[in-house]
Amino acid sequence: MQNKEVKLKEKIKILEEKNKTNKQNHSPKNLNVGIRISVDLVSTIIVSIFIGLGIDKIFSTHPIFFIIFLLLGVITGFYNIIRYMSKLK
């Protein structure tokens, strides 16, 4: 009898642990993180390219501000990702 009880308790423990890891891997919050980061990187680059092209059009200095803001956009995108990831942990 007692042997059976101990075995059952062990089984319950193993199952509970399995449940825990499963929940961590499949919670929608993780999917949310992936979706957020991938779009954030692209959108900062798009916005900064438009800013650069706009400034170039005003001062007619075609490639200079475009290149500067393109680089700034890439830096911003990665900076935001690093900031977001460090906030998670």
Partner: peptide, 25 residues
């Protein structure tokens, strides 16, 4: 000098990332 443009760009990119995320998905 570097951080202010970064903050401004990430602030301005908010509506773009918000809309592109929903639309693209």
């Amino acid at each position: 000098i570097l951080l202010v443009p970064i903050e401004v760009i990430s602030y301005l990119s908010r509506p773009v990332s918000l809309s592109v995320r929903l639309f693209a998905n």
